[in-house]
Every structure is written in structure tokens, then in C-alpha cells.
Design a protein around this nucleic acid. Sequence first.
DNA 1: GAAATATGTTTACAACCGTAGTCGATTCAT
DNA 2: ATGAATCGACTACGGTTGTAAACATATTTC
Lengths: 131, 131
Amino acid sequence: MSAGARISESEWKVMEVVWTGPPVTAQQVTNALGVSEGWKPQTIKTLLARLVVKSVLRTEADGNRFLYYPEVSREAAVAAETDSFLDRIRRGSLVPMLAHLMESKRPLSHEEIEALRSLLPERNSEIGGES
Amino acid sequence: MSAGARISESEWKVMEVVWTGPPVTAQQVTNALGVSEGWKPQTIKTLLARLVVKSVLRTEADGNRFLYYPEVSREAAVAAETDSFLDRIRRGSLVPMLAHLMESKRPLSHEEIEALRSLLPERNSEIGGES
DNA sequence: GAAATATGTTTACAACCGTAGTCGATTCAT
DNA sequence: ATGAATCGACTACGGTTGTAAACATATTTC
């Protein structure tokens, strides 16, 4: 169900916190992001509430406050976001975009590079070719 | 200038058409997308107008209509979109996301795979390591 | 040259987003 | 217990997006 829960930019920041150690309280998220993002506590409450409405988060009561649990795994969210990204830049740009990705900022670590290399098929294996 | 021109989902579809053969007229875009996207001609006019406001497109008069020219190259747009994408899913998910990217749908062609392989540094070259 | 047609401009309107104030209920501190 | 702090719910408000109708103007057609 509800495969298509779009997560907005600000909501992503909240989700990153939730994913690193669920369940979390609104206060924990505020501690983690309030200062760095310059958000008032109310802003974070609003984002959490919206994520609940979108079924990206689920709550469990704990006294007067809520414990927030992810209903969508990070992997699933990343996969969905990747798909929507690819739908935008539709194919032709895949290689250029990876090129940009590798050059720019964030240099890749050895581990990442090895992981990527292992993703590519063997040099002479037969794979689904283009028409 | 104006590096930060955000292009929305629908606008991307329009831009893909523009990039494939500038300049284009609104009618050409309508012919290319109207049916496939189920958009009324007015919708496309609106999107074009918004792209002009955002300085992603530029117009040149041609009789009673406009010729639309891109002011932003596809490469630049893809780069910007890639950055914003990476800002969202922030790093940890890079390799998983590439894995997902390679598996899913669109199988990569031989050419693409070779291009990607050539992007990865040599097995034992010294590269910027992680902190 | 009047009617039909095509074009861009203005206006619309609901949903979503960023960011938060306010309000009523609850809990904590004294 | 009474006041202070906290919590979630409701409300807000300007901006963006998706989707387009209305309208004014220019051009083509008969």
C-alpha cells in the first residue's frame, strides 16, 4: 500500500534522524536538527505530523508525547527517490550524471569505489544490450 | 547567472523536448507532449512561461509567436539536479542507490557500462580518502 | 474585411511545502 | 495545588506546482 509517499526536502532531514535510531521523540529530532537547520521546535512538530499523515511515520503514545517509528525503510525511500530522479533526467543523462557525481564534492572512499566496481558486470559477460 | 533555477517535474518534461532541438515553438512542444502527457495546450504554455520567468528558457519573437531557447544546458541542469538529489539522500545511501539504479528497469548498454568503468579510478591509484 | 484560428498574458485554484504562532491539555516543579 | 514548561492539534500565510480557463491580440482564411 501507499507506495507513493513523496518525502519533501525538509522531511528527508527529519527522516534521516528517525532512521538512525527509532523510535525517536520530537525532542530528539529537535536536538539533532533544531540548531543545525535553524528550525523552531514547532517546525519540527509540523514536519513530523505531516510524515505521519503520509504514513511515512507511525506514532505510539508514551505519556503525553509520541514515539515516532518509520513505516518506510530508508532503502525503500532511497529507491523511490532514485526512481523519481531517473524519471526526471530520463536516461540519456545517466552517464554524465554519474560522472558529475564522481568528480564533484564528496570524493568517494576506497570502499565505495570498490563497491561500485563490483556492481559493474564482468568485462565480457553478455548483458541485455540496447536495440 | 542565476545558478539556482529549480526545474519542476513537469517543467523537466518540457525541457527535454527543448533540449533535443532548440529553438522550439510552443506548438512543437505540444505536439511532442500533449498526447503522451495528456496536457492541454494551455498547460504547456504555462510551463513555458514559467521557465522563461525562471530564466531557464529565453524567447525570441518570430511573428506572433515565440521561439524558445534554453538558457541552461542539459548538463548543467542534470548536475544541479544531481547535487540536490545527493543532498537529500545524503551520502550513506550512495552505493545502495547506485546498486538500485543499475538493477532496476533500464538495463545499461555496453557503452554505458564501459563509460562508467572508465570513470572509476585505477585499482591502485591514490585518491582523496575519507576523513 | 470579417470570421476563425493561433498565440501569448492574466487569472484561477487546489495541493503541497517551508516555517511557524496560537491554543488547549498535560505534566513537572515547588 | 498552582504556576511553569511541554506536547500535540489547529491555524496561518506566502511561495511553488499541476493544471487549465478567459481574455486580448495578431494572423490567416474566405
